[in-house]
Design a binder for these strands. Structure first.
Lengths: 176, 176
DNA sequence: CTCTAGCTGAGATTCAGTCTCAATGACAAG
DNA sequence: CTTGTCATTGAGACTGAATCTCAGCTAGAG
């Protein structure tokens, strides 16, 4: 059986699971309410996907999620994954962005919290940032254009600290 | 023969063409220089696409462009259109953004000028905006994260002035 | 427990964008 | 002007993400 005890006691693992689940208790309530309200069903698959997504804070794409489920022995089709992500997106629990790639990236959202992204074009790392002053200026720009904003996304591409240093060093070594 | 004289004199049309071409004279030089430098050829298709793109200031996607060329009686394959857009993108003459859609949007760029987009989710209109104060704050955020930015994109979704007014009016008419 | 409306998975489909390759064409050199 | 070479083109195959289809399955109300 994959995932059998190894090193950590059953108790330790149980505690870790409890604390993770507790973290998402509010979100779970929102999700079930949302489903009930739309007369949708709380299926095995939706619950499993919810649990997986809310067990970490990582960014992911649809296929990552399929793979992670499969690793846990749960075979859930891509169609269902997309359908569930759509639902979670609709009820505001996950965010969905295009970082100038072919595919969407999803991320767990915390209520009322917004952030934007810096993407390292060398290593692919995604760094989140928030700046209320930028958001304020944004509001001002909207007012100026009589535009009623409902959402926004703001991405910055470039080199992260690590890759920037590496690039600078490489440039120094080959001065010609 | 499609596009035959109709209403406007040949002279008027000729002047319009001249003034449009003059507008893009600098860009044309940049493009041909770029091609020469990369030992690429100035083909009939590349020239035709360049002329079409630089005859307006609209945003467009690859298939729009194919259609526009076809309307003018020039059948240019999608492959060539994509290849040419890639070249124009490389030499900085056109911009390419993903506005959280499946496809890329392209737009003619003016040298050294940068702008971001507000997209009306009702009518699809795209409004350009620039705010140097936002750009400054962005730089500050990058410095804070030791991130070396090379480019960015910033989109705001919502209702444009027209659609906003219409929505407000609709809401007022159905108060229940 | 039953029944039904909603759900799932496998695979077909779509759609933007890229790739392939044989035929064509730009253009430099003669 | 002619020639030779090598980039370019177009038709259509291909890819990969996302969506759709539909027969069989299941949640959950009654």
């Amino acid at each position: 059986m994959p995932g059998a005890p190894r090193g950590r006691s059953a108790l330790t693992r149980a505690c870790a699971i409890v604390s993770r689940v507790k973290e998402a208790v509010e979100e779970r309530r929102i999700f079930t309410e949302f489903l009930k309200q739309k007369k949708l069903k709380t299926t095995r698959e939706r619950t499993a996907l919810f649990d997986e997504i809310f067990s970490t804070h990582r960014h992911f794409d649809a296929d990552d999620l399929v793979a992670r489920m499969r690793l846990k022995g749960k075979k859930i089709s891509r169609a269902t994954v997309y359908r569930t992500l759509e639902l979670l997106y609709e009820c505001g629990l996950v965010g969905r962005v295009r970082l100038n790639e072919e595919k969407y990236r999803y991320e767990r959202l915390r209520k009322g919290e917004h952030h934007d992204h810096m993407i390292c074009t060398s290593c692919g790392r995604v760094i989140e940032f928030v700046d209320p002053r930028i958001e304020q200026l944004q509001d001002a720009v909207c007012r100026h254009h009589k535009f009623t904003a409902t959402s926004h996304s703001h991405q910055i591409w470039g080199l992260c600290a690590t890759c920037g240093v590496r690039a600078a060093r490489a440039a120094a070594e080959v001065p010609a």
